[in-house]
């Protein structure tokens, strides 16, 4: 290979060409890692603070994510109450029940007699002698209809209303709507907290870098004396910020996974009592990647803020 007459030494922005640039970067990268490794305890403390800070919004996000998955399951379990005409007796009710259970979109039909309805009502209202005080049971037969998953409940209830012998169809979705409203509120809260905590991470790292700069004042001075550019002086600190952020993000991920592991036992027992096989989901890869890289970028940002201010103080005016 023939070597051309080297790179132009006059080029101020990239003196020495791309390879020299790469070498300077490699040096900054290694020296930033070296600086962190030389003070393991201080580095660890910063990373732990960042991990806890980052794990809070991530944990909240995961809680909501899991809660949404549960409530998706609930929606499918929701039933439609079909009140039959008052004159329909047991035989008619059972017939209609078996007819409806053949409809597509319906999983199960459960007939509830007026007596059973009354018993449930008295129990719920804590009026033990209600049945005694009312001469004739005014309640009609009720069919509890369980829609199939994916079935649009509104359409189904429309068709049920049209069926013969049906007086009223009641879909009680209000509590589900409330639940999803609460979840939406909490989600917004998670976003808000996420933003606040992201700012906190940038400032924690910025402050750590500020102290690093203070401790390495002499080094910065000497580097400037022997002809280092601002970029060269700045770069190790930016890398340090990135490492802090990356470490904090990874540790936060670990904290979240550990918490999920610790909670998985109790959650399993709880969902067991509801005859559900619900398990807590780990954060998806996209969330992990956003967490880790995002906090790395926040670290660079924080470091940039700290270094910019201090570099200006170093050079003679």
């Amino acid at each position: 290979m023939s070597r051309r007459a080297g790179s132009q030494s006059g080029g101020v922005p990239w003196p020495g060409g791309v390879r020299a640039w790469a070498r300077r970067h490699a040096y900054s990268l290694l020296s930033s890692l070296g600086a962190l490794v030389r003070h393991p305890l201080a580095t660890l403390m910063t990373v732990v603070v960042l991990a806890i800070t980052l794990s809070l919004p991530t944990g909240l996000y995961m809680t909501l994510d899991n809660a949404e998955r549960i409530s998706d399951g609930w929606e499918r379990l929701d039933t439609v109450s079909v009140f039959l005409d008052a004159e329909i007796e047991e035989r008619g009710a059972v017939q209609l029940a078996s007819l409806l259970s053949t409809w597509p979109g319906i999983v199960a039909v459960d007939p509830i007699s007026p007596q059973a309805g009354m018993a449930e009502l008295t129990g719920r209202l804590q009026l033990d002698d209600l049945a005694g005080r009312i001469e004739a049971n005014p309640l009609p037969w009720v069919l509890e209809v369980t829609p199939a998953g994916g079935q649009d409940v509104e359409t189904l209830s429309g068709r049920l209303r049209g069926a013969e012998g049906v007086d009223q169809v009641v879909v009680d979705l209000q509590w589900l709507e409330r639940l999803s409203a609460i979840l939406a509120l909490l989600e917004r809260l998670a976003v808000l907290l996420g933003v606040l905590f992201a700012v906190a991470v940038a400032f924690v790292i910025g402050n750590t870098i500020r102290m690093d700069i203070h401790n390495r004042r002499e080094e910065i001075r000497v580097l400037a004396l022997v002809g280092a550019t601002d970029g060269f002086v700045r770069r190790p600190f930016l890398y340090s910020g990135f490492w802090y952020g990356l470490g904090g993000g990874l540790a936060a991920w670990l904290v979240v996974e550990l918490s999920l592991f610790v909670l998985s036992g109790p959650v399993g027992r709880l969902s067991g009592t509801y005859a559900s096989d619900f398990t807590l989901a780990s954060p998806p890869w996209l969330v992990v990647a956003t967490l880790v890289l995002g906090s790395g970028i926040l670290g660079v940002l924080g470091a940039w803020l700290a270094v910019g201010r201090h570099l200006r103080a170093i050079h003679p005016s």
């Binding site: 390879r19 020299a20 070498r23 040096y27 002499e218 000497v222 580097l223 004396l225 060269f232």
Partner: peptide
């Protein structure tokens, strides 16, 4: 104006490192 936490070799190497020498 030497860096006390760097070896003699690394102190002398500084101007070359800054220039991006291999």
């Amino acid at each position: 104006s030497l860096l006390s936490d760097r070896r003699v070799f690394d102190n002398v190497a500084l101007p070359l490192v800054i220039a991006g020498v291999a």
